[in-house]
């Protein structure tokens, strides 16, 4: 594949990652700000919202940049493997930033007549399970980098032959 096709591929994936890691979460959190469930407003402060939006945007930008580099690189190249690994690592931080921003703990304040209280929904365990699965992805990416490095000459030969 020529450089133009590589760059087009990278651009398409960057757009997809920008949508999924920045635009959709930011829009969702912004909508969630004023969302009311059955008359019960979500306990979601402006500070939380700003915190979430900052980290989602910041890490989303890094992920999208890495995605461009990864998907515009030739198949089985060392640079593709390396940036795929970096992307997965940044993705871990991205997922964890939800926890720090308080988005994994949603608190519903209940005030019904004379009775009042709160309902807390903790999604931290779900994030931890997801990170556990992600560890396997990290292992696979490390394996890919080692594989691409060891078999560099053969991969290059096969690629040139195509």
């Amino acid at each position: 594949m020529g450089p133009t096709i590589n760059i087009v591929k990278g651009t398409i994936f960057t757009i997809i990652y920008v949508c999924f890691t920045i635009i959709i979460p930011v829009v969702t959190f912004s909508l969630l700000r004023g969302y009311v469930v059955e008359g019960l407003p979500l306990d979601f402060t402006q500070e939380d919202l700003n915190n979430i939006i900052f980290w989602v945007t910041a890490l989303g930008l890094v992920i999208s940049g890495c995605a461009f580099f990864t998907h515009s690189s030739p198949k089985q190249s060392i640079r593709r493997g390396s940036f795929a690994l970096i992307q997965v690592l940044v993705n871990c931080l991205y997922l964890w930033s939800y926890k720090f921003s308080g988005a994994t703990e949603i608190i519903f304040d209940l005030d019904i007549g004379d009775n009042s209280g709160f309902l807390s929904l903790n999604l931290q365990q779900m994030v931890l399970v997801y990170l556990g699965i992600y560890f396997l992805t990290i292992v696979l990416k490390v394996y890919d980098v080692i594989d691409f490095t060891i078999n560099r000459e053969k991969i290059r030969y096969d690629r040139m032959k195509e």
């Binding site: 594949m1 020529g2 450089p3 590589n6 760059i7 990278g10 960057t14 900052f54 945007t57 910041a58 890490l59 930008l61 890094v62 999208s64 940049g65 890495c66 461009f68 580099f69 515009s72 690189s73 030739p74 198949k75 190249s77 640079r79 690629r159 040139m160 195509e162």
Partner: peptide, 26 residues
């Protein structure tokens, strides 16, 4: 956010340059 925007731009620009110089198939 500036530092993250700069990282994003550097990644894109360097990705384009590296692909032009070393497209991989030749």
């Amino acid at each position: 956010l500036t530092i993250y925007i700069v990282i994003f731009i550097i990644l894109i620009v360097s990705g384009v340059i590296i692909n032009i110089i070393w497209p991989g198939d030749r």
